[in-house]
Design a protein around this nucleic acid. Structure first.
Lengths: 208, 208, 208, 208
DNA sequence: TATGAATGAGGATTCATTCAT
DNA sequence: TATGAATGAATCCTCATTCAT
């Protein structure tokens, strides 16, 4: 009865979605500008231009909005990583890796506000939020690990402690995002940074 | 008459020091367990087993205790990095680098609770706290950058974009601390991890 | 759409005004009964029958409410003094003066609680509050001084040290309010007291 | 056994008295400078140069010290008023009155700090303190009333409403003390003010 | 559905007073 | 007697959340 897809119901649903999106968008801005802890419900509803009660019609709590924003970003990251063929030949691999890194940086840069939140203070809020971030980090870490293992198996990469190296690489990605996207507000040459990164991890620093 | 350094005065001073240390130690535990924001003054005084007022006899505020703990850790880190001669010959340099990294990991591991706080949620608390952490991170980053520049100047390291690479290396150090000290609670072979790290950054991954 | 002055908005505004007035009225009672310092926010909200937070919805602080009450009274006094033509002929002047004094006593008596606060302990509270009271007292004192000076200029009053005499007269007004309004709770014949006062200051006590 | 007046006991008693006086004197300064409410026990013990606990060996509470200071002043006032022969002939009476007023002003001025406290914020602290001040004011008021009644009985003063006029006169004395002693810090010609006051109350203002 | 006034638990901090030394 | 560290009740104020309209 309630979900009969007539015009009225449909329009209402669309309006609801819109409202929700509006609040979410405003929250994103505010969280990025002021940080999670400093942001109050008052800030959120003022930015969204809705009444305090309205906010709670769409979200259960301050934490809920934050989690939703967080999930958005993590999903974007996941998508930007997915579908990379890490098992291909060495020749094109460098370029592929560079492309992957560029995609990740793009994802971060195109959601600068979100990335800021995640990398500046996402941890330590709430167990739920923490868990999500941790599991995301683990996913990324796993991706790196699997890629490394493949490289070694194919004789393309030299043998190494994959566990440790995956940690190093993940850390360097995280820091690059933090530095270039969060601190320097995305004003950087992604291609250049990505290439420097890939080269560093592949070739090392030692002069030969 | 009253400030003659007799036994009584001396004992009083010692008792004061002890009380202070007791509060500080309790705070460390609580902050590490619950995080800065979630920790209330009530938590701190309950953990320390003192009255609310007593806390304020020794510290100005929650922020003050936190900053003091933070400074402790940052000082430890600083000390563990200082005094490494990054300009010596390549042969011993690897060992020296490994030693440096081991020292840093030791510093982090010996203050596991503190490191947890710093690397889990140090940012976004309070401007003062934030500034300290940022400046510490910058110092470490600078140290890496200077070392790299020296290595290149001496012909020991190949030319590279020092800015980017310093970021990568700093990020990998940070992540190693986070993973091994914070998440895995310090149960790892520091020598091994440090060596894998140094080797990775020097040699890269490519099979030759 | 939302600020169209329709019934709903209007009713809301009215309700707000009412709430505010309710808190103000309760505060007046409590302040008069317990004094400013002894009154806590808890006392105020309990007396008003609202939650602690509600109080802060309408007033910034305890001082703010107090100041508002104070301003009310001072305004009443000011209005009761204003508009007296002190330069007219001696004949009607006595009556005019009596009228003025009666008005002041009326103002005080009709705000007995407020007057109690002001004259019992208004000083030494808070710099802001103090300043208001002092400036009000000065205004009243000035009014007396100017009136005296006019009287002398017109040859209606004998020459005298206007500064000192204005102080004496202001003090006697203050004390009359204190005694009759505050201590005796307004149960007195204002006309009689006012006339006795005017006569005393004009004629003095000496038998002739 | 304990009150045997030997040298030891006597010396101890004297030392006690001295300590007490020292605390009292310091309290007087601080109360006058900062006001009762703003003054903390910390302020008092710091000014007195004794430990917090020591303070409580001599006084029961902050209120107690304050009351004692208050009593001192009231006693001084009482003494300065006492012994005036209000029943003597009219001729010398003016001078006698002037002398009395001068004495009162002297008493106030010589205890400027105390007078400041009493007249600025003595009321509204504590029921005990309030009662003392009220009873003192009543005593002074009574003195004035009796004097007036005597004057009328002797045919020296014209008939008037003694109740009201006593209030007026007491108020003017109070205000003169407040203005000249408290606000202007005692820098005034007491003889002149006293004479202006007596003349005003005896002769009134009307030009004849 | 939208509103925003009302709520009250919970936060940090203060300070008169006590009490072991 | 003198000390001053310790106490904890009490203060003001905030803010996420609820709910009557």
């Amino acid at each position: 009865m309630t979900d009969k897809p007539d015009g009225r119901t449909e329009r209402a649903r669309a309006a609801r979605e819109e409202r929700r999106a509006q609040i979410l968008a405003a929250a994103l801005e505010v969280f990025a500008a002021k940080g999670f802890h400093t942001t109050s419900i008052t800030d959120l509803v003022e930015a969204a231009g809705v009444a305090r009660g309205t906010f709670y019609l769409y979200f259960d709590s301050k934490d809920t909005v934050f989690c939703e924003l967080l999930d958005d970003l993590l999903e974007r990251f996941r998508a930007s990583v997915k579908g990379i063929d890490v098992a291909s030949g060495a020749a094109s691999a460098v370029d592929q890796l560079v492309t992957t890194v560029v995609r990740i940086l793009d994802a971060a840069a195109s959601s600068q506000a979100l990335a800021t939140i995640v990398f500046k203070e996402a941890v330590g809020l709430d167990q739920v939020v923490d868990d999500r971030i941790v599991s995301f980090e683990e996913a990324l870490h796993d991706y790196v690990r699997v890629s490394l293992a493949n490289g070694v198996r194919l004789g393309w990469l030299r043998p190494h402690d994959t566990e440790v190296v995956a940690t190093l690489i993940y850390g360097s990605i995280r820091q690059v995002i933090y530095r270039y996207v969060v601190v320097e507000a995305g004003r950087f040459d992604r291609e250049h940074v990505a290439r420097a990164m890939v080269e560093h991890h592949l070739l090392g620093l030692i002069a030969r």
